[in-house]
Design a protein around this nucleic acid. Structure first.
Lengths: 340, 340
DNA sequence: TTGAAAGCGCTAACAT
DNA sequence: ATGTTAGCGCTTTCAA
């Protein structure tokens, strides 16, 4: 960084006026004569003056930046959310500082500190899988830093959130399999530490119960990635009566199951129907195409960013927390319904 | 944001010492007596004092933050790069400000301005597809803002870069198909505006030529996404003598081609062998698995961030530009080689 | 219509 | 061992 970037002072000196005049001229203050205003603006563009946002932030105790803490960017869902956030922030003139917790609580805490130190105007966060205490978040609220959760939230922290109705989504997915005549539906579930993992499991159970089917614990297996899915499938197929449907907690798991089953010569959806969850990108890539719950990541990002910016800009930012519940949509394709 | 966050002044006042003493105590300056140091540190933790990074930045004309401009986050490759950047930055104590150009030149220019305004200590950029002029980047260099390109770079701008040897990668991929006995190899190429698009095409041509095969322009089709691939396949299959191999500029294109061909009942790799490029995540998801060039996105991110931080921290940051060329690796799977 | 001065939070000469 | 002062770049009262 050049030691001497162009400052207001430079312009003032060059023009023989005071810094305050330049400042005012630059922002079109009506008091300044048209003549000086033009003079200043001309020189500013000629010198390629760019305001120092840091100085501004210090002065106004507002950084015009927001922080985002995300578990892992390398997931289609999270990167879509990020994309939505970034676009909304850009339009509103906010800069986005991004931190990746890598699913580590410790790192999440460090991220919060860093963002706080940088005096971001607010923070968007999806908590890491191994976070169990949330003092770092309470701290933010105590210091009146607006906080918005997206997707994964911390119980007991009262602030804005944007979530998917996971319970309903899981219910819909399972109900869909039941409607197709499936009787023994397995669920590959996610980490039960996370609310979303629990909600999806509950939605699954609810669908079974309300349709008069038994909940068989041997059909519920923790499997949240490609490899775990392979293992889980092996386990399921050893059962006396294997399943005729699988609802998986995410698409990669669903696809892992699908490929493993196909290798064993099992017909999809003929013998086993499969529904996945969330990773829009994969659906069209397997044959038959994967039925899946679309989580609308980009919309989640835009909604979360809007919620945050609304609060940041509010004259009185202490209105009660808002929750936006995004409805997910079940996209039916060939992996569950032979008609597709 | 609470109007009154704890400042050094607050601590000083409470303890009846001067702000400078507190400042020094906080950073373990040897001059300060152990007693005061303890006193200060205790109160600081009790009050949960966090330094104001903004004030620090202004003072030191160093923000300890770096900017990243990326075309689209919602790509596995770019999100991996971002992940690598973020991890390295975190370890080095830098904060990462991310901007998405959405492949728009105009927005890229705005992003550069915003980052410059925020006085980031350096910028990592992969230029947008429709950027043709690069004044905004020269401006940065004139103002001595360290700049590092990753993946896509601007011709004529002399600064650090990290790139994949695309020419070599394309050569290897095409050569692999030739080694398998393929004679009519098609190329689904990317935008020729981008250097990487051209390099890949050239690598393809080079392999053909050096193996004594003709370059048939009717086998070279611009197709860089799923949909374009479908269309391109239709076109190819209408040819009097259709291809027996396809090298695609990215995995989605390769998979689009593969699925379309399979729907037509064409054997992969029996009748047509396919090799993709770059999107690690998809390879294992189609049957047969896709042969592909692994671009090592995460490593690109870490390399780029290291290059930038090295320059930022250098006592004399004006050493000649460095270029890191990452070797890509061809991962051979079933879509090209029946042995897999 | 413009200028002078103070201050945002922090640090680092330069006193003492 | 600690305090005083000035200043990073900018805005904004207050004064002229």
């Amino acid at each position: 960084m050049k030691s001497s970037q162009v400052t207001i002072k430079d312009i003032a000196k060059a023009l023989g006026v005071s810094p305050s005049t330049v400042s005012r001229a630059l922002k079109g203050h009506p008091d300044i004569s048209l003549e000086t205003r033009n003079m200043v603006n001309e020189l500013a563009t000629r010198l390629k003056y760019e305001p120092n946002a840091i100085a501004l932030s210090l002065k106004q105790s507002r950084s015009n930046s927001i922080g985002v803490i995300i578990p892992e960017m390398v997931h289609y869902f999270f990167s879509s959310v990020l994309s939505g956030i970034t676009d909304v922030a850009y339009d509103a003139g906010f800069t986005v500082i991004i931190c990746q917790s890598n699913e580590k609580h410790e790192r999440e805490v460090a991220n919060v500190k860093a963002l706080y130190s940088h005096r971001v105007d607010g923070i968007l966060i999806s908590i890491s899988k191994d976070s169990e205490t949330f003092d770092h978040l309470s701290y933010l609220l105590e210091n009146e830093v607006p906080l918005v959760f997206f997707d994964r939230f911390a119980p007991g922290i009262a602030c804005d959130k944007v979530i998917v109705d996971d319970f309903d989504a899981a219910y819909k997915a399972t109900k869909h399999l039941i409607d197709l005549g499936r009787k023994r539906i397995a669920h590959f579930c996610g980490a039960q530490k996370l609310i979303i993992g629990r909600e999806r499991l509950e939605g699954y159970k609810k669908a079974l119960k309300s349709e008069g089917l038994p909940v068989d614990e041997s059909l519920i297996i923790h499997a949240e990635n490609f490899e775990m899915a392979r293992v889980a499938v092996e386990k399921l197929m050893e059962l006396a009566s294997p399943p005729d449907g699988i609802f998986a907690v995410n698409d990669l798991t669903a696809i892992g199951a699908m490929l493993t089953l196909q290798k064993r010569g099992i017909q999809i959806p003929g013998q086993i129907a499969i529904v996945g969850f969330s990773d829009g990108r994969f659906s069209g890539i397997v044959e038959p195409n994967l039925s899946s719950v679309d989580q609308h990541g980009y919309e989640m990002g835009t909604a979360a960013a809007r919620l945050l910016i609304k609060r940041i800009l509010a004259k009185d930012p202490f209105y009660p927390p808002e929750t936006v519940i995004l409805q997910s949509s079940l996209i039916i394709r060939g992996s569950s319904d032979p008609k597709f």
